[in-house]
């Protein structure tokens, strides 16, 4: 059966992509941010996952408000980088783990999650940036991907509790998938930020550091919080952090936090990552 080899929580801030595109990786402002990802990148290179399940939100690029799925699942064999207004970024096309996606679609529907299934989907920075942070900018991505898109833009957004349950279901799907694929799960978004309204520019580094420190070892509080709690503590767009709960819910109760990193502000956002492995 397939094996879950680890879980990564990470920001997907678009200014990270812009910094890479402008060659600012080693600039004074950005070097400390990117350097903090080196251990996770090293881990990916050593562990060589076959499939990356990436949970992210579309930012008004693949979906518009005319029809906006609360939950969507990519079932395609490839995904192009989206045009977010500046033209598609020069990142490789993502090869889809089509067989696993359809297996997951079955598991989701049988488990009473009913996603929009997408066979022709461009993916925006929500997926591009996490992949670049841990795999760099290769000629071709070394893993196949499974995109899971969560609406975090138009209310009502799904609850944190639902995200955790989705993670538990994802784990069952991985554990029941025939073959020997090694699967890594990337929960993305956050950390604290707010882009809209008079509270724009809100960041909460203290809460972010607490999140980074505890999401692996003691996620109980975060699992119990309401959507409003997330918005108050992490800002309106910081509520994207609920997507890390899919990753955390997918892992064992007991995990080891192998690496963690925090940096603020990346543009207008608290940014960082954790890398988790099951303890047993």
């Amino acid at each position: 059966m397939a094996e879950l080899i680890g879980g990564l929580g990470t920001s997907h801030v678009p200014s990270i992509a812009m910094a890479l595109d402008k060659g600012l990786r080693d600039s004074e402002e950005w070097k400390p941010f990117f350097d903090g990802y080196a251990p996770a990148r090293q881990w990916m290179a050593e562990k060589r996952p076959d499939i990356a399940v990436v949970i992210f939100n579309d930012h008004g690029n693949s979906f518009f408000l005319d029809r906006l799925p609360t939950l969507a699942l990519g079932v395609a064999d490839r995904y192009r980088p989206a045009d977010e207004g500046w033209g598609p970024r020069p990142v490789p096309v993502f090869e889809g783990a089509e067989d696993f996606s359809w297996h997951l679609a079955d598991c989701m529907v049988e488990g009473h999650f009913d996603p929009l299934l997408c066979r022709d989907l461009d993916v925006d920075h929500g997926m591009q940036v996490p992949m670049e942070l841990v795999f760099g900018r290769p000629e071709a991505w070394p893993v196949k991907v499974v995109p899971i898109l969560v609406n975090t833009i138009q209310y009502p957004i799904p609850t944190p509790q639902r995200m955790w349950a989705l993670g538990e279901l994802l784990r069952r799907a991985i554990d029941s998938y025939p073959g020997n694929d090694r699967v890594v799960v990337l929960g993305t978004g956050g950390l604290s930020h707010q882009l809209q309204g008079a509270r724009a520019g809100f960041i909460n580094p203290e809460a972010d550091r607490e999140w980074i420190a505890r999401i692996g070892s003691d996620p109980t509080r975060y699992r119990a919080m309401s959507r409003e709690d997330y918005i108050e503590e992490f800002g309106s767009e910081g509520a994207e952090l609920i997507m890390w709960l899919v990753m955390r819910g997918c892992m064992d109760a007991e995990v080891n936090t192998l690496h963690q990193h925090y940096f603020a502000p990346a543009s207008m956002t608290g940014a960082g990552m954790v890398l988790l492995e099951n303890a047993a």
């Binding site: 138009q154 209310y155 809209q196 008079a198 509270r199 918005i231 309106s236």
Partner: peptide, 18 residues
């Protein structure tokens, strides 16, 4: 932004705004 926003100064894209 307005008294109708549940969280002060935080304009969520709810039914009214959408």
């Amino acid at each position: 932004m307005t008294s109708e926003d549940r969280i002060p100064d935080t304009p969520l894209l709810d039914r009214r705004r959408a």
